[in-house]
Write a protein that binds this DNA or RNA. Structure first.
Lengths: 197, 197
DNA sequence: TCTTTTATGTAGCGTTCACTACATTTTCAT
DNA sequence: ATGAAAATGTAGTGAACGCTACATAAAAGA
């Protein structure tokens, strides 16, 4: 089972590992952002030449798309789990912000959220659009999870949650350590630990 | 009094108004961000040619610096006033977030905060540094204003305030209208309306 | 072996970028 | 009038960008 490269494809075999390359690209994009990573940077880091790059990935933006997907699977926040329905909203969001604080500072040279930072308009509209799509999907997941508990306030709370995550991502990129980021997250979840109005 | 252009400088007079040009540049940078505004965009918008541009402003990054300063003076949040010591922390921060909601959506084509968005690492390290300097100054003003009331928690609260402002700026750029932004600000200030622990 | 298929390395494409050399024009000071 | 000073328009610089033409190398199928 699993249709991973069992049959040999036919022609000259690829001299580098594609998945590994996507991982390296993900790290570069996360460190410096899409615009600040040039094709020369990428081919240099992968040890390949431009034709091999384009044969394997199509374009810089396409590779970015694969890096985003890989990030979402391997390092992105698991919203479904963190916002599981057995927790109260207060507990769930406190857990979410705590997880964000840890995740956004996990790699000292690649801080913040790749998706959130990528969704900010840069020079390339295609690349930015890919990140925005993922960001919207995340928002939808968050919104739906909240709606199970607070149906009418779901949109408003989702706005707040996305804003807090964006603020924490910004702060992480600004150099705040995990403890200061955690404090921001705890402060942000105070909005739910008391009131009801 | 005031040493505004009274004495005529000597040579050929400038064919355009420099301050007005800084204003146009400020608007362009605010709309698209530093990297996405090319010199061709700038000279086109100002109706001048590159030599006039460089004679007047020195470099793209220098003009950006002047645009940032102009923004801080004309459209930036007046932290000193908003965080005036006669208000409680809860009142002051609620007022700050309310003002941010309005300011960040005041121009439909140039949303968010120019300083915060500019401080995110782009391609140009010099331009980014100028924005970061202003951002740090703002943080210091906020921190000092808070310290007058909550001396030991000033840093932690300042982290939170800057993160909220960054999140609101992100949300504004994402297209949220003033009401949704206001709701985020109100939710964010709930952290201060109750607790004391 | 011989063809087909795919990936590779070399070299360079066209475009856009921020920025300038240079001659000219317009002003003030003498 | 004449020279100095400053800004202008024309035209183009070198560098970096994402990307590609093309011949060659390495594998599988016939």
């Amino acid at each position: 089972m699993g249709d991973t490269k069992n049959v040999k494809p036919r022609g000259r075999p690829r001299a580098f590992d594609v998945d590994e390359a996507v991982g390296k690209a993900q790290a570069l994009f996360h460190q410096r952002g899409y615009d600040a990573v040039s094709l020369t940077d990428l081919t240099g880091a992968l040890g390949i030449n431009p034709p091999s790059f384009y044969a394997a990935f199509g374009s810089k933006a396409d590779l970015y798309g694969r890096a985003l997907e890989r990030y979402a699977k391997t390092e992105g926040l698991d919203f479904e789990r963190l916002l599981a329905p057995e927790r109260s909203i207060a507990e769930a969001l406190a857990a979410l912000f705590e997880a964000a604080a840890v995740a956004y500072t996990a790699h000292s040279e690649a801080t913040g959220c790749l998706v959130i930072e990528g969704a900010r308009g840069g020079t390339d509209a295609v690349a930015c659009g890919k990140a925005k799509t993922l960001s919207r999907q995340s928002r939808q997941v968050v919104r739906d999870a909240i709606a199970r508990r607070e149906t009418d306030r779901a949109d408003e709370i989702a706005d707040y949650v996305m804003a807090v995550l964006a603020g924490m991502s910004t702060s992480a990129r600004d150099g705040l350590d995990v403890d200061r980021l955690r404090a921001i997250g705890r402060r942000a979840s105070l909005a739910f630990t008391h009131q009801k109005a």
